[in-house]
């Protein structure tokens, strides 16, 4: 079972935060096909969040086909998001961490690193409008 959380200062609508966290958990292999998501009532009680917000998030996830609601039973993972398998993320995260060590050792701060990543992404044709 995954732990969901909410950051009310992030500016991201609460339902979208829940969608992103579940999607992230699917990508990282924390959730697998067949796993059950916490019930709407459990999430509402754990986060003091409106049940309709949780429902909206689960509906969105159903719409994308990642989960399926079974009435009276719960919501289950049915498909993983497209993209590389979870291991690939882990390997990439490790090499990124080594790269960050190197960047820090030559004196780059967070802002400089972010700017570098951005421009690299742009050079690869990424980071379209709204992605920021």
């Amino acid at each position: 079972m995954i732990q969901l959380r909410l950051d009310t200062k992030s500016g991201v609508p609460p339902y979208l935060q829940l969608v992103q966290q579940v999607t992230h958990a699917l990508r990282m292999g924390i959730l697998e096909i067949g796993d059950q998501l916490p019930t709407v009532k459990e999430v509402a009680a754990a986060l003091a969040v409106n049940p309709n917000t949780v429902l909206k998030a689960y509906r969105e996830l159903e719409y994308t086909g990642f989960v399926e609601g079974r009435p009276g039973v719960g919501t289950f993972v049915t498909r993983l998001p497209p993209g590389p398998p979870p291991n690939a993320h882990l390997t990439l995260a490790r090499s990124l961490s080594r790269w960050l060590d190197k960047a820090r050792s030559v004196g780059l701060d967070d802002q400089a690193i972010e700017a570098l990543v951005r421009s690299a992404l742009q050079a690869h044709g990424g980071l379209g409008e709204g992605a920021a």
């Binding site: 509402a44 009680a45 986060l47 003091a48 409106n50 049940p51």
Partner: peptide, 14 residues
């Protein structure tokens, strides 16, 4: 406060 609102959200979920 958080616990009170959590109880409220849980009741509405029913």
């Amino acid at each position: 406060r958080r616990q009170f609102l959590a109880s409220l959200a849980e009741a509405v979920a029913d």
